[in-house]
Write a protein that binds this DNA or RNA. Structure first.
Lengths: 202, 202
DNA sequence: GGGACAGTAAACAGATCGGTTTACTTTCGG
DNA sequence: CCGAAAGTAAACCGATCTGTTTACTGTCCC
């Protein structure tokens, strides 16, 4: 057995590695993955290219790390935000709260739509590790919604979850395209109709 | 007044220009816009780079032409397909037929989702001409749906059109991500619920 | 005090990027 | 017959691409 290391809070990321990821996140999201070179990331992070390759190995791996961290943030933030805003409410309230949360998330930091959908548009190689992260993210959201649907007493929770997921994606895309003034309000209405149809009235 | 030219069917595109656009369409859609260079397009089209720049002027202009042609095809195909499949039916039937048409379109040639949404992910410069084409396309679909909603006697045609548009986009994105087995069926169910709510029963 | 680790600085590699230029050929309508 | 348009072929431009290499400096822990 390996000896247990000292219990100091070990930073998963070195300071430089964190700065790299921060810079990469901003640049990838706002300018596109392919359009951003590692030289630019290095410059922005105040770091040498060597450090990037020492920490991440390749640009593809850095892209995967970028998506992974974005996923982690979303997974911790969304349930917390739902609990915060729908505290004391029903499961149905929580489901509707996910749409308000979506609006908050987008207004706050994501004017260009879903980083995963955008990344999927660029990561055309099906073998790219980032594609796995993207698929995982959508499956997580679907199962989170499904869990809420079960608790809301939906007739067919799986089907309702699919419907809600579709509405989420539609709202996010329209938000990013600025093609419709207030897509999140539209999505909330659609969700209400879907809930009604599934027998979730409480 | 300028003299009317001879009435020969003038080809809007020279043969080489057409081959260039064909090659660009396949490559841009399947590999991404930024990831594809003009040298590759030239090679695929059996053409010199000079010809590309003689015909289109810049890569950005070629990208806009690619989106424009894709838009044109969609605008002629969709109404025709809807008339074909919902011939003799009601306006409500036509609305639902747009979702079947979407499935046909995607199965046929667009496994990677909507070319416009994908392009929007890459065209980060708000001044890029392609962004106008994208916005126009969404507005066209919205007004096409809105027209059908009016004829279907919707309580609030504009709002219903927004809802249907959102469902369309959601279905397309989920289709491209392969995150849900049959997003188009899900979208049809959602559309039925939305129509019901808007009072369109015929 | 010595090694492992994290980092800087900067050159280097070969390929590719969008775009231009020069010189020559083919086709076709007035 | 002549000139314009459409095209090939290929070299060239400077910049940028992902990724590697060499040499050196801190810092921290055993």
């Amino acid at each position: 057995m390996t000896t247990q290391a000292t219990q100091t809070v070990r930073p998963r990321l070195t300071p430089a590695a964190r700065r790299i990821l921060d810079a990469a996140e901003t640049l990838f999201y706002n300018r596109g993955i392919t359009a951003v070179g590692v030289d630019l990331i290095a410059r922005r992070a105040g770091v040498t290219k060597k450090t990037i390759y020492d920490r991440y190995g390749s640009k593809d791996a850095l892209v995967a790390a970028y998506l992974h961290r974005r996923d982690e943030r979303w997974r911790t933030w969304l349930p917390a935000e739902v609990e915060r805003t729908a505290a004391g409410g029903s499961a149905r309230d929580r489901i509707l709260a996910t749409f308000d949360a979506l609006a908050t998330w987008m207004d706050g930091q994501s004017p260009r739509g879903c980083s995963f959908v955008n990344a999927a548009a660029e990561l055309t190689d099906p073998g790219h590790e980032g594609r796995r992260v993207i698929a995982d993210q959508k499956h997580w959201l679907r199962s989170y919604l499904r869990d809420l649907c079960v608790r809301a007493g939906a007739a067919d929770p799986g089907l309702l979850a699919d419907e809600l997921l579709l509405i989420h994606e539609g709202a996010t895309v329209l938000y990013g395209l600025s093609a419709v003034p207030d897509p999140v309000t539209v999505s909330r209405r659609l969700a209400e109709a879907a809930l009604l149809r599934a027998g979730c009235t409480a």
